[in-house]
């Protein structure tokens, strides 16, 4: 199903889609893990355990120790802007800085918007009139429009009703399949994890460990 793993002759590190080598920062113990193309990984942990710290470190938004690689290329060798567009973090609370919805998109997203249940004219909508659920779905479309290789989603359906939650889940799964992209999805809902995830990470007091999906559910 996934591309065959190949090994870099120079440093003998397997070329995963995303790899974390002793990644650490204050509040997060060193973690070494790799993510393959197309994989959907759920993450759970108590509030304050370090889930957001982990995602922010992977998105290179905070200083950290250790190494991050995307398809074998260290984050340091890639422009920060390119890294963040390729390893795109969508926080639980979306932010908006201009008046119109369209002003926040840097790439066309008509298909994505329709798949999330928005009419064609949504681009002209005023941001201040959006509900929290609409903002959350639009933030997802805004991120996917960048065609990232890895999606880091921090409770992306927390403000959504069941119908829209299903839409978002389906869109992300289809995206990962078509683009061979991976997703790290923070979710507190065991049912959602069972629907979505192929692997599961648990974070406890800054320690990340992989557990069997059955145990997580």
């Amino acid at each position: 199903m996934f591309p065959r793993r190949i090994t870099s002759s120079r440093e003998e590190i397997p070329l995963s889609l995303l790899s974390l080598h002793a990644l650490s920062r204050p509040g997060l113990d060193p973690v070494t893990l790799s993510v393959e193309p197309g994989q959907r990984i759920s993450i759970s942990g108590e509030s304050g355990s370090g889930k957001t710290l982990l995602l922010r470190a992977i998105a290179d938004l905070d200083p950290h120790a250790g190494e991050l690689r995307l398809e074998g290329v260290p984050s340091q060798d890639m422009a920060a802007t390119r890294w963040r567009a390729q390893v795109c973090y969508v926080p639980s609370e979306s932010q908006w800085w201009d008046e119109r919805v369209a002003d926040h998109f840097s790439a066309p997203a008509q298909e994505l918007l329709q798949a999330l249940g928005f009419p064609v004219e949504v681009s002209e909508w005023a941001v201040r009139r959006l509900s929290s659920g609409e903002r959350q779905r639009l933030a997802m479309a805004r991120a996917l429009a960048l065609r990232p290789r890895v999606l880091l989603l921090d409770e992306p359906t927390a403000n959504l009703d069941p119908g829209n939650t299903e839409r978002v889940e389906r869109l992300v799964c289809d995206y990962c399949k078509k683009q061979n992209a991976a997703v790290l999805w923070v979710s507190h809902d065991p049912e959602q994890r069972r629907r979505l995830a192929q692997r599961h990470w648990v974070i406890e007091a800054g320690r990340v460990r992989e557990v069997a999906l059955e145990a997580a559910a």
Partner: peptide
């Protein structure tokens, strides 16, 4: 802070993120 970082998360440069 959140607004500035939201732009960084979308691949904007620091210059763009703080331009306003």
């Amino acid at each position: 802070r959140e607004r500035i970082e939201a732009r960084l998360m979308l691949g904007h440069s620091a210059r763009d993120a703080i331009s306003h």
